[in-house]
Write a protein that binds this DNA or RNA. Structure first.
Lengths: 119, 119
DNA sequence: TTAACTAGTTTGCTTTACAAACTAGTGGAA
DNA sequence: TTCCACTAGTTTGTAAAGCAAACTAGTTAA
């Protein structure tokens, strides 16, 4: 209810974009889910919860955009590291194109704001 | 199974952002739903369907971000024109801040892509 | 042994996108 | 006058997403 964090990326805006960002990250190097859910804040995504990250990773694996390998850790239970697939690479390029397009259009709308007043 | 509708990213990416864009538009001048659903393509938003636009406008009115007035048309049935509220103005400013923040972070991620092999 | 931390899955509720079906007014053509 | 195409809006049903919360389970340290 009350937790209104004004300078934060709203969960609504994240929809759909989060998957593209995960593809970018996983393309850089293998990540495991917990790492992402804890460490995304350094990329400006505050508090993306486990209940969002894990099911999204699982659905991306089902869509064969990524695949996973369990690997032991020195500090705890095994980690499921994710790697990008060829399919994922294509999806990533497509995301970047669509993002650039969306970004352009939204910025255009924002910058035109108010200059259209002819009453 | 069955209807595997490989949904493109664009419809996913619109989620959440569409409301902000509608606020920008309605803040420029009153719009009616049909106009938006037909004319959004000039802003780069291809094919935002009625089944998305109308229920979104209704939910925004319920949240008191906008309000509506029925007005007669010379070319057909009455139109429901939407106007922005004070609440909507606040939400609009908040959207723009969040968008700028998101935009910055996603672009940072995109531009860092690949040059981040090891730390 | 217990607690704290790491790591991941599953469940259940709520919201969203949107195709499709539906109501209804207007104008023009047959 | 009847019919159709267009305009304009609502409602419904389904699929999927976000995510808090509950759950399992391994590791380390007190």
């Amino acid at each position: 209810m009350g937790t209104k964090k004004s300078q934060d990326i709203s969960s609504q805006m994240l929809k759909g974009i989060l998957q593209g960002c995960l593809l970018i990250l996983i393309n850089q190097k293998p990540y495991y889910g917990y790492e992402i859910s804890q460490g995304l804040s350094q990329y400006g995504f505050e508090d993306v919860p486990k209940g969002t990250i894990y099911p999204l990773l699982i659905s991306m694996e089902k869509k064969e955009l990524i695949f996973s390998k369990m690997q032991p850790s020195k500090e705890g239970p095994k980690r499921k590291y994710y790697y990008i697939t060829d399919n994922g690479m294509k999806s990533l390029e497509s995301f970047i194109n669509q993002w650039n397009n969306l970004s352009l259009n939204v910025n255009k709308l924002i910058n035109e704001r108010g200059q259209n007043d002819e009453s």
